[in-house]
């Protein structure tokens, strides 16, 4: 199994992602500069967090036209696994690989804290080690993480089990107070219909070892390995 961590000008969670896969999980991992046009040799593509292109115009709007994106879109259409975290999620919506958009947090603040997520689909390539309804603690750090889509899109997401993570309180309930950014239906992460492209605002790679938290992020990262029969 080979992992590509895509690096855009302004990515800043690329090293965290690299460290998690390479050093914690011992997976063959490369940094891949955004000018690369061929990703065929990789099994998993990671779009990391950060501020690609300084968030100019809109978060992810410019990155979407980076040369590497053509290959990412082509590989995603062929069923290759792609995960976009934070800015990576924004890039996935801008490029049309995932529906909806991420707009400014409702309270206008940059929010950086641990949040509780409920796993609302445990049968994906990214959550197969979780149980349905599990709550996990994963940090967020964003100013534009307010997930928005039209009501009919939300209905479609729900009926296809595409909402993978929701922001919840300590009891696992979706409350307004447990929604850190105003996201529609407390959505924290969604997957495409084919089940191979996941976008999430929280950072599993930032909670992937006990030293800096409870390592809940590993449940997601290890799920990916499991889907390759690696775990």
């Amino acid at each position: 199994m080979k992992v590509a961590i895509i690096v855009f000008p302004g990515s800043n969670c690329d090293h965290d992602a690299y460290y998690s896969f390479k050093k914690i999980l011992n997976v063959d991992t490369d940094f891949v500069w955004h000018k690369e046009s061929n990703l065929d040799k990789y099994d998993l593509i990671v779009l990391p967090g950060g501020f690609s292109y300084g968030d100019y115009l809109r978060c992810g709007a410019i990155s979407r036209f980076s040369p590497v994106m053509k290959s990412i879109v082509a590989n995603a259409k062929k069923g290759k696994l792609v995960i976009g975290i934070c800015n990576g999620f924004q890039i996935l919506t801008e490029s049309g690989l995932l529906p909806g958009a991420l707009i400014k947090n409702e309270n206008r603040q940059f929010v950086c804290k641990n949040v509780k997520l409920r796993v609302d689909n445990s049968e994906t390539n990214f959550t197969n080690l979780c149980n349905l309804g599990d709550t996990i603690t994963i940090p967020i750090a964003h100013g534009e993480g307010n997930y928005y889509c039209e009501d009919n899109v939300l209905e479609e997401l729900k009926s296809n089990q595409q909402v993978v993570f929701r922001y919840v309180d300590d009891n696992g309930q979706t409350q307004n107070q447990s929604n850190p950014n105003g996201s529609k239906d407390n959505i924290a992460g969604i997957i495409n219909k084919q089940g191979n492209v996941l976008g999430m605002m929280p950072h599993p790679e930032r909670n992937a070892e006990k030293l800096i938290g409870n390592a809940d992020g590993l449940k997601i990262l290890n799920s990916i390995l499991t889907s390759f029969g690696k775990n």
Partner: peptide, 8 residues
Amino acid sequence: KLLSNPVM
């Protein structure tokens, strides 16, 4: 395609 995002 670029200057606006039709979703929002």
